[in-house]
């Protein structure tokens, strides 16, 4: 898979896709949606769609695609190249969501949680297929959160296609299995060849699985703490594991939106009994509004 677009800039979102097979513009198509790398504290999350004409579904099944989790990395690579050989009737597209995009979404002033991010990304990819002229009639999605509400939302957004959202859809529908293989191949390759934005000293690429409970991953996180900046952007700062390590091993940081809450806390009751006369007069509003204070000592 050619990830050179991602290597150029991996701080945001990156979309990659195959050309649309001509037959997919004419014949009614099934489309599967799946994701890889949702749980890990390291690296991107990848969302993928895969589609083919309903009439060729048997040919896709004949490739023996299966849930990507039950396949070895080699088998996934092999299946993906077979799908590439079948590009006259199989198409795919994917979104690589960088760890930086995930962190900044989840830690925004208005929190944008991972489920919403996932749902919106999946909708975006289905819309992309439609915009490219793929004649999508049926969509199968591996669920994130409750399948019923997710299905309802997608069905509302795409009233002209039949949407099926199910847990374990990647094991039930070959077109979702195919999507899961695309996603996993891209995620594995992206992690392996990750271009660090930072100039990290003594970079260790033995991350372990990237899952927060993997001792190797935890050791990697601890080793790469930078006291001021925290971690390289390869780390999802919004993960509890990452935050816990920062709390212990990095300097504290107060943001303007977190500070406001604390300052407005109640005054100590004894403060009302203290003579006001001892307190210095606050500076004029002109200076307060500009964050200026007079300094009398260094």
């Amino acid at each position: 898979m050619d990830l050179s677009e991602l290597d150029k800039d991996n701080t945001g979102r990156c979309r990659l896709s195959s050309p649309v097979p001509a037959v997919c513009r004419k014949e009614p198509c099934v489309l599967g949606v799946d994701e890889a790398g949702r749980g890990p504290v390291l690296g991107p999350m990848v969302y993928a769609i895969c589609y083919c004409p309903q009439s060729r579904l048997a040919d896709l099944e004949a490739l023996k695609v299966a849930d990507s989790k039950t396949l070895s990395e080699n088998e996934r690579e092999r299946l993906f190249s077979k799908m590439e050989e079948d590009r006259d009737f199989v198409g795919w597209a994917l979104d690589v969501l960088s760890p930086n995009l995930i962190s900044t979404s989840m830690l925004g002033r208005v929190k944008y949680n991972l489920n919403s991010l996932s749902h919106d990304t999946a909708s975006g990819l289905i819309q992309y297929a439609l915009d490219q002229g793929v004649n999508v009639t049926q969509v199968f999605v591996d669920t994130v959160g409750l399948p019923e509400t997710y299905q309802e939302r997608l069905q509302q957004r795409f009233p002209d296609v039949t949407v099926t959202v199910k847990a374990k859809a990647d094991a039930l529908y070959p077109v979702v299995s195919a999507a899961s293989i695309c996603a996993k191949v891209a995620r594995d390759q992206a992690v392996k060849s990750w271009q660090f934005v930072e100039k990290v000293q003594d970079l260790d690429t033995d991350y372990g699985s990237g899952y927060p409970n993997d001792p190797k991953t935890k050791a990697w996180l601890r080793k790469h703490v930078e006291p001021v900046f925290g971690f390289p952007q390869f780390v999802r700062f919004s993960w509890r594991t990452a935050q816990a390590i920062l709390e212990k091993e990095a300097e504290g940081v107060m943001w303007e939106d977190s500070a406001a809450e604390e300052q407005e806390g109640s005054r100590k009751i004894t403060s009302y009994f203290q003579s006001e006369g001892l307190q210095a007069r606050p500076p004029h509003r002109y200076f307060q509004e500009r964050g200026l204070e007079s300094a009398t000592a260094l």
Partner: peptide, 20 residues
């Protein structure tokens, strides 16, 4: 920055921040 780092120490701005 719109935040306060509760420490006063050198930071590798050129390695961690500027390239991003």
């Amino acid at each position: 920055l719109p935040c306060e780092v509760l420490a006063s120490r050198p930071a590798p701005v050129e390695r961690f921040f500027s390239p991003a």
